[in-house]
Amino acid sequence: MKKFNRWFGKNLIRIYAVMGFTYLFIPIVYTFVFSFNDYVRSNLVWRGFTFDNWTDPCAPLDICPALGNSIKIGLIATAGATLLGTLIAFALARYAFKGRGIVNTLIFLPMATPELVLGASLLTMFLDLGFNPGFWTIVIAHVMFCISFVVVTVKARIASLDPRLEQAAMDLYANEAETFRRVTLPLVAPGIAGGALLAFSLSFDDFIITNFNSGTTITFPLYVYTHAERGLPAQANVIGVSMFLLALFVVLAGQFVGRKRKVSA
């Protein structure tokens, strides 16, 4: 017993962490299990095991077009927000200029404003201007709320760079453009990739802002929400779990490649 107590005390934090991860993954396990449910109309009760939902994920009307919209919007919004956010991050991290306080405030405010207010105010403006909400208003909204997150991520990376690396490049007669292209940019790249990944995941999973500015366009989260009351097909679980596994695979593969490159370099 004494031995157990000591082991317990030593590993308390690990036990706690395992419990934390369990909590985090319970709904995903549930979603995964019910993706194999032989459901009729609504996927609430277990009725038997089937692979049908996995072999035909596009069977329910609208579900795959909704997923397609989410991916398209995610990619366009990520590209836009990453470009705009990275430029701002370089300006903030590398230059002294007047109006810095205003810029910082304008970056901070969208993050301190609830999504509901961002979405609702944008819709108010679009309606005032007589704009019909749809695919492009969703893209505009997503770029807007992702910019700040990209700025914060990329800025942190630039700030952590060793300035001596760039000085060394200049000492070796690289001009400013060359130094930027061959030293600074490759060093900041992981930060930009991190910002882009964050932007994509925020955009892909966004419901609240999208719900306000979507018009008749349907994204995957909107599909899930609108069908939740009438009965959600198990194919929604298939898509959710697939995206989760895909994301896990992409990030882990990226880590693995990164580690390998570091070893060989």
Partner: peptide
């Protein structure tokens, strides 16, 4: 971070 990708509403 991974649970983010399995839709927030689905979870």
């Amino acid at each position: 971070v991974a649970p983010f990708f399995c839709s927030f509403i689905l979870r």
